[in-house]
Simulated assay, not measured.
Amino acid sequence: MIQTENDAAPGRRERKKRETRQALADAALRLALEKGPDNVTVEEIAEAADVSVRTFFNYFPHKEHAILGRNPEHLELALERFRTAPAEQSPLTTMWLVVRDVLRDLESEGELSRRGELIMASPDLLYHLMLSSIEDERRLTVALAERLGEPAGSVRAALIISSAGTACRVAMEAHKQAPERSLRGLVDEAFQLLADGIDPRFHRNRTQKGQA
C-alpha cells in the first residue's frame, strides 16, 4: 500500500514530539549535573533545547519533571501490558516486564546511571519522584485490580504495584552504593525476593503466636 503524505503526517508529528521531549529531558539533566538541580531554570532548559518556554510547558509541568525525564508513554505502555497480558501470567511477572521495558528505554538513552545518582542525591527530586510515582501507582493499581477481577480498593493489587515500585527504588540505592553491579540485575534480584517472600518465617511465627 502506498502511504500518502497525510497518512505519514501523524507519524512524523509523534516522532517530533518524542524528539522534543527527549531534547528537553537531556538538556535538563545536563544542566542539573553541571549546576545542581536547584540552580537550573525552565528558561535555561528551554534555551538549551532550542525551544520556547511555552513549548517546555507543553511537555513538562515544571523543571523537576524534566530533570527526572518523566515520559507519560511509559505509563501508557504499562497500562497496555496489563490489558493484554496472558491470563496465565502472574501479576508480579507483568509488573517485572513493565519495569524491564522502562529500564531498556532509559538505558538506550544512555543517562540512566547519572540521572539515578542525581535523583538519589537530591531531596527535592526524590520528593517529586515520590509524588509522581504515587499517581502512577494509583492508575496501575486500578488496572491490575480490573485484570484480577477485584474491586478498585484491592489491597493485593495495591501491594503488588507499590512493592514493585519499592523494589526499583531499593535497586537504585543499591546500585548507587555498588555501581559495579548491574541495575537490571539488582532489579531482578529484588523482584525474585518479592516472589519468594522476603520473610518466609512471618506466617509461621504469627501462627505460633496465635497458638500460644
Rank of each mutant, 00 (worst) to 15 (best):
D101W: 07
F56Q: 00
P91H: 02
V98N: 13
E80K: 10
H65Y: 15
I45Y: 03
E44N: 07
R70E: 10
E44Q: 15
K35R: 07
V40E: 07
E111R: 12
M95T: 02
R81N: 07
A85Y: 03
V99S: 03
K35Y: 06
R70P: 14
L75F: 00
H74V: 06
E76M: 09
L97D: 02
F56K: 00
H62S: 02
R104C: 03
T93K: 06
F56I: 04
D105S: 10
L75I: 05
R81K: 15
E64T: 02
T55Q: 11
H65V: 09
R70L: 15
T55C: 00
V99Q: 04
L92F: 06
F56M: 03
N71G: 02
T84D: 11
E43L: 10
L79V: 02
V53D: 00
P72E: 05
A46P: 04
A46M: 10
L33Q: 08
A87Y: 05
F57A: 00
P72K: 10
G110R: 12
S108L: 12
E111N: 12
R104I: 04
L77E: 09
A49W: 08
H74L: 02
P86Q: 01
E107T: 02
V42Q: 04
G110W: 01
L33V: 05
E80A: 15
E107N: 15
V99Y: 01
L92E: 04
E88Y: 09
V53Q: 05
G69I: 08
L33C: 05
S90Y: 14
R104G: 12
L103N: 02
T94D: 09
L75S: 12
P61F: 13
D38E: 15
E76T: 10
E73P: 12
E80M: 14
V98M: 14
M95C: 14
Y59I: 05
L79Q: 11
L33I: 09
H65F: 09
V53N: 09
V40L: 13
H62F: 01
R83C: 13
V53A: 10
E34A: 01
R54Y: 05
V51T: 12
N39M: 12
N71E: 10
D50W: 01
E107R: 08
R83H: 00
E64V: 09
E80H: 15
V102Y: 08
L106D: 00
L103I: 08
L106N: 07
R81V: 14
L77S: 14
T84H: 07
F57D: 07
S90A: 15
R104K: 03
V51A: 06
